[in-house]
């Protein structure tokens, strides 16, 4: 029992530190470093949400997305966003990611399934009224040697293998998604 509790605590701490680290990379616009932390078979999805009746079994589309990415398309996006000619991000928008409510759902020796909440506060130019993006993320982390390792950890590195972003918005409340969620 004590061992199990300790293991869950360690896992959650490890996941939280990975999420905080990834958020820092994105907030600091180190997009290529972020891309190094996704697995080669990553599935990254941001399905479109619609307002539905309560009786409807889901509000999220299975065929329509804002982003539906793999390793290659994420590489294209991160490279493009880093270009001197990506006008939507030059001057760059300023983002601050607030990660919270981290819940480990399931785990094996190789993979951890978790949920977390994310609020992104995004500002541009001299605007004092920032755009706020609110969402839940369902992630799967996988142990890979060249993944992220917190300095206290004795375990293997972590990479992002699957992410589904469940937005709280049906209309994206910011003028472009030229950022990674």
């Amino acid at each position: 029992m004590q061992d199990e509790l300790e293991r869950r605590r360690t896992l959650r701490l490890e996941c939280e530190e990975f999420l905080y680290h990834a958020a820092e990379l994105l907030d600091d616009r180190r997009l290529s470093d972020w891309h190094d932390l996704v697995t080669e078979d990553i599935e990254y999805r941001v399905p479109i949400r619609t307002t539905r009746e309560r009786s409807s079994n889901t509000e999220f589309s299975e065929e329509a997305f804002h982003m539906k990415e793999d390793w290659g398309t994420l590489k294209v996006r991160t490279e493009r966003m880093s270009s001197d000619f990506a006008w939507s991000e030059d001057p760059p928008s300023r983002t601050r990611r607030q990660v919270s409510n981290v819940r480990v759902i399931d785990y094996t020796d190789d993979e951890i399934e978790l949920k977390s909440n994310l609020v992104i506060v995004r500002s541009r130019k001299a605007e004092t009224d920032p755009d706020i993006l609110s969402m839940e993320r369902h992630d799967t982390f996988r142990r890979e040697e060249d993944g992220y390792v917190p300095d206290w950890s004795e375990g293997g590195g972590l990479k992002l293998a699957r992410r589904t972003v469940l937005l709280d918005h049906t209309v994206i409340p910011t003028d472009s998604l030229s950022i990674i969620l």
Binding site: I48, S61, E62, A64, F65, I172, D175, S176
Partner: peptide, 8 residues
């Protein structure tokens, strides 16, 4: 295909 993307 699916639903439209909508954004401000």
């Amino acid at each position: 295909v699916g639903d439209p993307q909508r954004w401000v």
